[in-house]
Structure formats: structure tokens, C-alpha cells
Design a protein around this nucleic acid. Structure first.
Lengths: 293, 293
DNA sequence: TGTGATTACGCAGCCCGTAAGCATG
DNA sequence: CATGCTTACGGGCTGCGTAATCACA
């Protein structure tokens, strides 16, 4: 009987859902199933009633839940108050998209450094796709980037913020279009060459059966802003990128424009790397900040 | 943090001796050392002060001991009262020396059968050496026999009773010798051909520089009694064998004789087989009976 | 030099994650 | 047929026991 098993049990008992509990605890569903089975064998009773569609606590499960809560609380009390945490050391390698470096990372890393000064931090910044790919390859510990369309198996994502995608246009064009909604079939469009923003845009166009007037394709948000500034047409960027841009006076937001699904930016790591203490610590810190907010 | 680790810790904390604690818990010293080290790492503090000659609880160890006792007690309360024990099933193969079959086994097996009726019992009886050898080979789960001179590594022994070795003689000879101490250099001796009794006897003879008048060597306690009855000389048998013999009227105990080291009869099993539940159950039952006595 | 805790090392068992199974709405 | 818990299977890791090592009397 192990404290880890108690944590898993309590999560299932709270969510009454193996799949979600396994996600929340960063283990595979099968591991969770077997852990519960092992507990049930140890206790000698079924703890949950599963009818393959819903999960309920059994009578024995209710009693075990009381015991488990108490036992885990006592262990945490002992571990937390009596003994000071050991100094967390090791290394942590992060790859963050440019968006993330500007928006989320500063305060998060500030807290982290203050709390765990002994951890060797390494920070790479670049395209969001790179971040995701490297995290999945295991080359880095953690990616901070927009949530990819499909989570690779064995990966965990912690959403931290939703960043709107906005339409931007040269100042003159905005002034002129202010009255009417933005009509993408008539206004020239600067298309991102690839990436999430491109996909979001294309999805909207397809759904609304709009054939855009694509004047040119660019790679990179900064390049896109530059092209829009030159008057090539309207474009789409994360709001945050525009806010940080030096061309805020010359490139304006089109307020009367379609609403695209926002970026969800967050932490992205493999379950394997989450076993490493420095990684887990950052993840937990981020979770706590979410709870506080 | 596991309940098994708590048990090990509490044993060390009580005995303040790694070697003895490892014996009592049926693990190797190295395993015990590492378990304690793992606990210390988990807690973040040294639990024991070892100066390579003595073991003391550290301050943190004292506090952890309180926690451990409470946590383990709560687990046992929960496990013991709320849930009924699962029906113990499986098989248990015992090899017992003849002595043991007569003396210790009946009441022990009676209790065992009553408590765990589902266990398939198999009982072999024969020479004590056979029992020991087969237990070490893993052919049987458990031997019930006299403790061998040297315990093989990886084996555990639980002493249950001390059975005196007595000198016996034909009735006439006893009557005649009653007044004077038994003089083995003058009285003919029936020597066991092999076994513990032979070694005990030879050790005594060597220590006391007595050259015995060995008339013949026999194999097996029953054979020895028969030869003594025929007047061949005095002999040595476990007291219990004599008590069970049909010749108690014709073969008498020599009271005024050397005292040999008694047999220590008990349970003998490999640590590996002690992991099996039916074996462990018998072992624990025997321990409880000892505590009660 | 001997006793007793600790490290080295090879091995086995356990647990995990992936993938397939299977029941149910 | 899609969802969600469970079993099958291969691989890595942990933890054991044996044996060698170290530290101290």
C-alpha cells in the first residue's frame, strides 16, 4: 500500500472517470486500471462499481476513501511541515514559441527561479511547431506553445491562456473599412505560409465558403506584420504579437472582423519527462498559479 | 512511501540493529539498508545515526517513528476490521523429522487447518537431514526439524522448542550404575551412525577427552533404542523419541549422565518460499503461539 | 582482525505504455 | 459504431540477494 496508489484512487473517486483521472495524474489509462485493481486485491473488496459506462464508488470504496484521505493528509502533514523540502536541483530545458516567451514565460520563470534557484535553466525560443516536435522527441523537457491540433499519445498539455487571433490591416485600410464588416472575398489577404494561424484561417474560410484574395504567403508572424504594413493586405496574428510589435501605429486591428478560435497556449511535456523533478515542479507551479487566478 | 517500508523502519527503530532486524523481517541486510536509505531520501533527513558500531534514532527518526506507528496502525485497523481477510488458498508442502512430527506438528497443524482450511497440505516425514536439504533445494516449502549446525544463507529458522538429548540404557544397567556418574570410557556405547546426535556426542567426547567404547553404530533413533534394549550398551536419543517408544519399561533414562546441548527444533524455510502466503501464514501462526506461551 | 553496515553487480519480477479486446449505449 | 474500461505483450526500471568493501574497535 503506497501513497501514490492513494493519490490515484482519490482522483478516480473524485472524478468517477478513469480516463480523465489518468490524464490528471499523468499516467496511462491501463496503468490506472491496474493500480486500482491492485488496491482492490489488497483490500479484498471492489472499490468501484463499473458498468462499462459509469463509475461509482462501492460501499467499501466509500470507507476506503475516508481512510485514504486521512492517511494521505497525515503523510503530507508530516512530510510538509516537519521536514523542509530538499533543495531541488537538476536541469530544465524549455523550448518556447516566440508568443509564449513574450506572454507567459516571464512571470512563470521568475517565480520558478526564485523558488528553485539551484535548477539549471536552459531556454530556447523559436517556431511553435519546433517546440512541439522537440518535446515529443524528448530533446527538451518542456514546450511552451499553442496547443497542437492533436495531442500526441503520451503527452500532457496544461492550458495557461487563450490568446485571440486578430485581423490586422494598414492604418489607411482600417480607416476606410471601419463602417462595414471585413469582407475577405474582396480585401487582399496576406496568408501565413504554415502554422496554426493558417489552419484556423483556412478552416474559417472553408466553413463560410469564402474564396479569399490571397496576395502573398509569408512565414513568421513578424514577417506578416511587415508585409501588412507595406500595404499588401490584411493578415492574422496572435493579438500578443501585434501588441509587442514596433509597428502598432502603422498596423491596426480590424475590429469588425471574423472571430477565429483563439490560440490556447500552455505547457506541453511527455509523461516521461514529467517524472523528472524539475519539470514536475514547474508544472505544479503553473497549476497553482491557475488555481490562484 | 509504502507500508512495507514502515514495517522495516519500525523494526530497525526497535532493535537498533540492522542485522537482527533484517533477520526478523526475512530480508537481506543489504535490502534493509537500501530501504532505509530510500526512506531517508524520501523524507529528506537521516533517520538513524550509524557510527558503524551502533545504531541510534536521529531526532527526525524519532518523529518519523511516531508517524510510522500511527500510520501503520491505522492501515492495520482499516484492513483488519473493515474488510474480512480473503480466504487463504494454495498449497503447503512440509517435510518434518520424525521427532518433529511427534512433538510440534500435531497442535500446530491443527490450528493451521482450522484457520486456513482451503490450503492443500502435504506432509512428508523422514530423517532431519533430508528435511533440511529439501528445504534448501526448494523442493518443499518448509522443514520442521532440528536447527542445523550452520544455517545456509537465504534460509530462515524459527526455534520452537528445545528437546533434551538423553542417555538411555537397558534397565539392568541403569539400576547398577545409578549410584555413580555414567563413565563413557568404561560403559559400551551405541553410536548413531550420523546426524546431529552423533555430532553432539562426539563434540562432548572430544571436549572431555573421553575415548568411548563403541560397540556398534546404528542408523535411526528407533534402531538405536532397539539395540540398547538388546543390551548392547548405552545410547543417546532425543528425549521425545524415548517417550514415544514402546520400550519405555525396558530402556531407561540414565539420570546421572553428561548433559548434551539440546536439540533446537523449529521451522526452517527459505526467504523465497516465505513470500508465499500459505507458508507465511504458518510461520506467523507459530510466532503467535510462541508469544502466547 | 573481526564485526557489522554499506556498495557492486547480476538477475528476476513488477509496472508502465502501446495496442488490441470487448462490452455497452 | 463510438466510447471507455480492460487485457495482452514487450521493454525498462526498480529492488532483491550474493559477494566484496569499508570502517571502526
Amino acid at each position: 500500500m503506497d501513497t501514490r496508489e492513494l493519490e490515484l484512487f482519490l482522483t478516480v473517486a473524485e472524478l468517477l472517470h478513469f480516463g480523465r483521472a489518468s490524464q490528471q495524474c499523468h499516467v496511462s489509462p491501463s496503468a490506472l486500471t491496474r493500480t486500482i485493481q491492485k488496491l482492490e486485491q489488497e483490500v479484498g473488496q471492489s472499490l468501484f462499481v463499473r458498468d462499462n459506462r459509469s463509475v461509482q464508488l462501492s460501499a467499501a470504496g466509500e470507507q476506503f476513501r475516508q481512510y485514504a484521505r486521512q492517511a494521505l493528509q497525515q503523510w503530507r502533514d508530516f512530510h510538509g511541515t516537519l521536514m523542509q523540502d530538499p533543495v531541488l536541483s537538476g536541469s530544465l530545458t524549455i523550448y518556447a514559441s516566440i508568443t509564449a516567451v513574450y506572454s507567459l514565460l516571464p512571470s512563470l520563470l521568475e517565480d520558478y527561479r526564485q523558488r528553485y534557484p539551484a535548477v539549471q535553466l536552459t531556454l530556447h525560443s523559436g517556431a511553435a511547431e519546433q517546440a512541439v516536435a522537440r518535446a515529443e522527441q524528448g530533446e527538451i523537457d518542456l514546450a511552451v506553445a499553442a496547443r497542437p491540433e492533436r495531442l500526441a499519445p503520451g503527452m500532457a498539455f496544461l492550458p495557461l491562456a487563450a490568446i485571440p487571433l486578430i485581423f490586422i490591416a494598414p492604418r489607411e485600410m482600417v480607416l476606410e473599412a471601419e463602417a462595414n464588416p471585413l469582407d475577405l472575398s474582396r480585401v487582399p489577404l496576406v496568408m501565413p505560409h504554415r502554422g496554426l494561424a493558417r489552419r484556423r484561417l483556412q478552416r474559417w474560410l472553408k466553413k463560410n465558403r469564402v474564396v479569399p484574395d490571397v496576395r502573398l504567403e509569408v512565414s513568421g508572424n513578424e514577417a506578416l506584420i511587415a508585409m501588412v504594413r507595406l500595404g499588401c493586405g490584411v493578415g492574422v496574428v496572435p493579438e500578443l504579437v501585434w501588441q509587442r510589435s514596433p509597428f502598432r501605429e502603422e498596423v491596426k486591428v480590424v475590429t469588425n472582423a471574423p472571430r477565429l478560435t483563439p490560440y490556447v497556449v500552455g505547457l506541453y511535456a511527455s509523461r516521461k519527462s514529467l517524472l523528472r523533478n524539475p519539470v514536475q515542479a514547474l508544472w505544479q507551479l503553473a497549476e497553482e498559479r491557475l488555481d490562484g487566478a
